[in-house]
């Protein structure tokens, strides 16, 4: 089966949110995320003749992105060698185990949460993929970015009742899809 084709003009609209979520949980910095995704797209364009159509476009882009992320890890790790470790506290009032305190991060998600979340994220992206492109965009702006109804209506030149019809259909489709694949 080789009927998958690349369509770089649609990459940003179709995959940028998916790639963004995939990267941000791994590098935790939106600027670096943007750079890695842009490198991914450029590498994809350069090697687009090697695409055999056996995988989906998204899977193919993710495989390039994964390599970019690993390269990024390598780069920051080689910088770490030069980093200086300060053992003493900056003032006398603080006591305790400096090593443990500097290593543990109570606000950090544990590994299980991260895995669960990335699986849930994948399930949600798969369901979002089934929505009509424009509807998905509007739904995401409203639900994830919390844009005002008014702002979205202006951006897409639609009436509020149009917007709510789109939201209603999208929510119904998302709930059905997640009921089948996640809940």
């Amino acid at each position: 089966m080789s009927n998958n084709q690349l369509n770089p003009n649609l990459w940003v609209d179709k995959y940028s949110d998916y790639l963004f979520n995939f990267t941000i949980v791994r590098v935790n910095d939106s600027e670096i995320t943007k750079d890695l995704i842009s490198e991914t797209f450029l590498a994809g364009l350069k090697s687009k003749d090697n695409f055999k159509g056996e995988a989906s476009e998204r899977t193919w882009l993710i495989s390039i992105l994964k390599r970019k992320i690993i390269d990024h890890y390598r780069k920051i790790n080689s910088n770490k060698v030069k980093a200086e470790v300060r053992i003493t506290y900056s003032n006398e009032e603080s006591e305790g185990n400096w090593l443990e305190e500097s290593v543990s991060d109570p606000y950090d998600k544990n590994a299980e949460d991260l895995i669960l979340n990335s699986e849930l994220g994948t399930a949600m992206h798969n369901c979002l993929d089934h929505l009509n492109e424009k509807h998905a965009l509007i739904f995401k702006m409203k639900t994830i970015d919390n844009f005002d109804t008014e702002a979205i209506c202006k951006e897409f030149n639609i009436s509020p009742s149009n917007l709510w019809v789109i939201i209603h259909r999208a929510r119904k489709a998302m709930a059905d899809c997640l009921n089948e694949n996640w809940f």
Binding site: N9, S16, F41, L42, L120, G121, M124, K140, I144, D145
Partner: peptide
């Protein structure tokens, strides 16, 4: 719960331009 994010609109515009 999913803490899903979207790529900022400006970044999307930049990437489209690059492509």
């Amino acid at each position: 719960k999913s803490n899903l994010k979207t790529m900022p609109l400006n970044d999307k515009k930049d990437l489209k331009e690059i492509i």
